[in-house]
Every structure is written in structure tokens, then in C-alpha cells.
Amino acid sequence: MSIKATLNSIRNKSSSSLTIQQKLLQVLLSFALGVFLGFIAKYSDTIPSNGLIGDIWGTISDITTRLGIWILVATIIAILSINPRIAAIKVFTFFSGMLLTYYLYSMWLFHFFPTYYFIRWGVIALASPIAAYIVWFSKGNGWFSAFCASMPIGLLVSEGYPFFYMFEIAFVFDILSAIILFLILSPNKKQCLRIFIFLLPIVFILRKSDILLYLFGGL
């Protein structure tokens, strides 16, 4: 069996074909979403935490400075794409829009461009198409799909794990995001069990190792 046939057996590409203009529109919408969320993420950092409105923006800032929301949105963008290549392009443009807006806004506010952080996040953004291509198959059925699904879910659970002894909104959001993805990516009880089997060791490895600290430490 060829590699293409093997991948198609995991998850078939959408039978509906899109025109070049429709594909371009989807990519532009992903970029626009990244621009919007990048603006919200930076703007929320500038609002004083005074009063109800300040508390709301403070909560938004806490959420957007963590990985959870970006994992959730990128995964949803990927799995809703018609094929893995489009998923990779859309997720990359999403993160490009987010990073450009966030750091250009920072430069406009503080007249200083944080080159170190931009480069580090830029490298992560460059790797996002590979992750999106893989995650696209999580919407399929079988063991490989279950493994693909367990990675973003496991990352979210690992990020939100402190919720079980520190009740903070940002951790609650990560756990709720993990539950949402678990429900979306579990079409039946059998697939649910497969995902869960992979999920446990992934969370254990992420919690007991320094992988996330190595990749995102200081960011």
C-alpha cells in the first residue's frame, strides 16, 4: 500500500473541492483571526486590573499568555480544514498574523521591538505547519488518529494540571479546552478509549520531564 493510500485510510480528504479563491479566502480568514487574537492578547496586557472590566481583561490576559488558547484554536483550524496541506498553511498564517500583530503592537506601545522573543516564537510558528499536518489526522478513526488527537489534548491537560490544586481561571480554561477537544475528536466509544490510552503516558511524560520548559521556558 502506498503512503498516500495509507494516509487516506486514516482520514479521507474532504470530497468537496474548493476553488483557488475559496482556499485563499480561508487562508486570509485564518490570518485575520490571528491578527485579531494577537491584538486582544497584547491589548489585555495594557488594561489596569481595576474594577470588573479590569478583572475581565486581566483574566483574558492570563489566558492569552498561556499555551492553552493557542493550542485549542490551532487544533480546531487544522481539523476543520479539507486536507492536511491546507491545515498546515492555515495554521501557519494564523500564528503569523498573531505574532506580527502582538509584537508590532508592542513596538508601537513601548518603541522597542523584543527581537529575542519574536525569534523564539517565530521558530515555534515555523514548526506549526508540521504539527497542523499531523493533527489533521486526529479527526479520523483508528490508532494513529487517536495518537494524533492525544497530543494536543495531552498538552492541554499538562498545562492545566495545576487546576487540581490551584483553582485559577487560566488553568480551568486549559482543562475545559482539553475536554472540548476530547469530545470533538472522539466520534465513538472505541476511539475514545484509544485516545485515553495514549493520553495517560503523554501527560505523564510532559509532567515529569522538562520538555515544555525547554521549548517554552522564558516565553
Score class of each variant (00 low, 15 high):
Met1Asp: 02
Ser2Arg: 07
Lys4Leu: 09
Ala5Leu: 09
Ser15Leu: 10
Ser17Glu: 12
Leu18Gly: 03
Ile20Lys: 03
Lys23Arg: 13
Leu25Cys: 09
Gln26Pro: 06
Val27Trp: 02
Leu28Trp: 13
Phe31Glu: 00
Leu33Lys: 07
Gly34Ala: 09
Phe36Leu: 11
Phe36Ala: 09
Gly38Met: 04
Phe39Ile: 06
Ile40His: 14
Thr46Glu: 10
Ile47Trp: 00
Ser49Tyr: 03
Gly51Asn: 05
Gly51Val: 08
Ile53Thr: 09
Ser61Gln: 13
Ile63Leu: 05
Thr65Ile: 13
Thr65Cys: 10
Ile69Arg: 03
Ser81Ala: 15
Asn83Thr: 00
Val91Lys: 00
Thr93Val: 07
Phe95Trp: 05
Phe95Thr: 02
Gly97Phe: 07
Gly97Pro: 06
Met98His: 08
Met98Pro: 04
Met98Gly: 06
Thr101Asn: 08
Tyr102Arg: 01
Tyr103Asp: 13
Ser106Arg: 04
Ser106Ala: 08
Ser106Val: 04
Met107Trp: 13
Met107Asp: 11
Phe112Asp: 01
Pro114Asp: 01
Thr115Pro: 14
Ile119Gly: 06
Trp121Ala: 01
Ile124Cys: 12
Ala125Val: 06
Ala127Gly: 15
Ala131His: 00
Tyr133Met: 05
Tyr133Gly: 03
Ile134Lys: 02
Asn141Phe: 13
Gly142Leu: 12
Phe147Trp: 14
Phe147Val: 07
Ala149Gln: 00
Ser150Leu: 11
Ser150Glu: 05
Met151Asn: 07
Pro152Leu: 11
Ile153Met: 10
Gly154Ala: 09
Leu155Asn: 05
Ser158Trp: 15
Glu159Arg: 02
Tyr161Gln: 10
Ile169Asn: 01
Phe171Pro: 03
Phe173Asp: 04
Phe173Cys: 11
Asp174Ser: 08
Ser177Cys: 04
Ile180Trp: 06
Leu183Asn: 10
Ser186Ile: 09
Pro187Arg: 07
Pro187His: 08
Ile197Thr: 08
Leu199Phe: 14
Phe204Asn: 04
Leu206His: 06
Leu213Arg: 11
Tyr214Val: 08
Phe216His: 08
Gly217Cys: 13
Gly217Arg: 12
